[in-house]
Design a binder for these strands. Structure first.
Lengths: 201, 201
DNA sequence: GTGGTAGTTGAATGGTCGCTCAAAAAAAGG
DNA sequence: CCTTTTTTTGAGCGACCATTCAACTACCAC
């Protein structure tokens, strides 16, 4: 038949995530993208259609990875609430001043704030991802409630949004460059919020 | 001597805040700025030096206004903690889906996330503003502690950061376009966090 | 009125933006 | 080897970017 593709789509997307997560949509030029992916414009456009298309796929890829990591984390715990509390502490620990990740803040939140009034398609995508995460949190909380971990008065929808807000804020605060002690303390304080919704306490 | 300036510096800055808050730094072109300020490039550059200079002044202006509003709000309350709790609820109420403000999210946070890896000067400015707000919150909390509103075990520095995180997250969540009921409930839940640090409870 | 001065104007600048496409290169079948 | 098919290449596109500056305008002092 013909020539093989020199580039692995998934590998290229990972590199795109790295750049976009770090610099945002407007902050990443095609020149920088070409360099980050080690691809020439023609190949990028043949593969991803446009800068928007590439960003959209990169964001989806980032979200999927994040979702997998969260699910994997929660599976390690017998108590769902324990798992959620430790998830917050883990984020605090991994977003410290010497992280090797492209950015400490969440790429989904960065995208939402950057594009909400300039690029409604991207904002809608970020929104639907956040809605999906919120839904997953709610489902986990309802399971916890069914197991008797949470007070019967607890509203799982509201609590899911409260927890999501903590995650968003924790990672945004990490972008401020706090010390790892300060960030860890913040993670602890956020985890402690959940104690107020637990049974036998 | 000579001709009067046709433009009021403060009025022009207000308009710049409106545009930059809505679209961000990279999302606002000089064309749009010229239109928003009703000024031609020469006048803009003569007055503010550069796009960066204008943005920087706009951000400072926004922060000063926000600081004044927060201080004015807290003065209305006898109890500082009551004031802080109601401040969160007020933000939730004023960031609803039908706000007339340029954006629901905080311009300082938007700037921090947008520029942290592309424009270190702006990020540093956003950082120092957030540090000042954190410091003001800490001072208010220490005063509250002195009045016996807070548990003696409460760490005012940590609590200040926890509250600042709530404000940041509340306004970022507002950008998701939640219903006003959902947003109000989130504000209530965040305010309730402070109950855990209060005395006689 | 007139001169001097500060403020405004907008065409024009060099650069970069996202993107295209004709040509070259690389693999597979014959 | 040559043909066919797919991919890569990179010069080049028009548009728009932030910015400049010489000409122009409006005001005040005299």
């Amino acid at each position: 038949m013909a020539r093989h593709a020199r580039y692995d789509r998934k590998v290229a997307l990972e590199k795109a995530v790295g750049l976009f997560w770090e610099k945002g949509y407007h902050g990443s030029s095609m020149k920088q993208i070409e360099h980050a992916l080690d691809m020439r414009p023609g190949s990028i456009y043949a593969t991803f259609g446009s800068k928007d298309g590439l960003f959209s796929e990169a964001l989806a890829s980032y979200a999927e990875r994040g979702g997998r990591e969260m699910a994997a984390h929660l599976e390690q715990y017998d108590s769902i609430v324990d798992g959620l509390q430790d998830y917050l502490r883990t984020i605090a620990a991994s977003c410290g001043p010497d992280t090797e990740a492209p950015s400490r803040a969440c790429m989904i939140v960065k995208t939402l704030l950057e594009s909400s009034n300039t690029h409604s398609e991207l904002a809608a995508q970020a929104n639907s991802i956040l809605a999906a995460i919120e839904h997953a949190l709610k489902a986990a909380l309802e399971q916890a409630k069914g197991r008797g971990e949470l007070l019967s008065t607890a509203d799982c929808s509201r609590l899911a949004r409260l927890i999501q807000a903590q995650i968003m804020a924790l990672r945004a605060m990490a972008e401020r460059g706090l010390t790892s002690e300060q960030l860890q303390a913040l993670g602890d304080d956020m985890a402690a919020i959940l104690d107020g919704y637990r049974t036998h306490h």
